[in-house]
Write a protein that binds this DNA or RNA. Sequence first.
DNA 1: AACATTCCCAACCGCCAAATC
DNA 2: GGATTTGGCGGTTGGGAATGT
Length: 248
Amino acid sequence: MVRTPCCDKTGLRKGTWTPEEDRKLTAYVTRYGCWNWRQLPKYAGLARCGKSCRLRWLNYLRPNIKRGNFSRKEEETIIRLHESLGNRWSAIAAELPGRTDNEVKNHWHTTLKKRFKQKSSTPKDGKDKNEDPEIQGTKLNNNANRLVISSPNPPLILESSLSSPQPASSNQNSSITADTNTVESRRLDPVSDNNLFEAYEADSGSFWTEPFFSDSYDTWSDMWAEFPLLDDEVLYPFGFYELEGFNL
DNA sequence: AACATTCCCAACCGCCAAATC
DNA sequence: GGATTTGGCGGTTGGGAATGT
């Protein structure tokens, strides 16, 4: 079987995402969902591979992402699950709300593996700088101050009963499921395509309370002001506006 | 201060499985 | 049922920041 590349390699940007690209992706996905990662960059105005967009969204821009240092409890969970599951990072991350498989994997390779090795070789040697999470926690994490759990954004009222954090496993986040039977939340917002938002809320738990856009925007209106809606015919070439959710 | 080394993490790559045609 | 497309996953790497010399 011959696989076609996930994207046309020509003319596509690679490497670090710019704030502008982040805003474009965030604006598009939060409004229209991730209905097709391959097509998404084209309609979102991004010169990126769909896979790259997906990864960026899931590992960085997605709501409910918990950033910063791992707690002792989280590290114990990782170690325990790694013993039983091996390198199944997505499964491990699923047990750590707000953590992504990539982050868990990185933390394992950079910190926990060494600590684990060291403990197994010299059980009483506790001089490793990484051994004490409290000490480790004092190290400045590049992203630690970028996203923290914050209070709900004033313009948004969330009545959802779906308060439990969603697993970080990407396979539970990447597609919008529109099980409207479970959606109880309603958003008081001028944006009218409630189906999409409801679907997203169902998928994202406390999405509307999350701070990702509060770094840049005070309200959704501010963000839409910066990213005015494009023509729906352009954004919705397949006319799935009428569809329930994004299970395409 | 300048350079070298280490550490950390965001992002890419390639493979696989499920879904779709 | 086979071909193709798409999403998901784990391994790996490049580059910037931190630290050491």
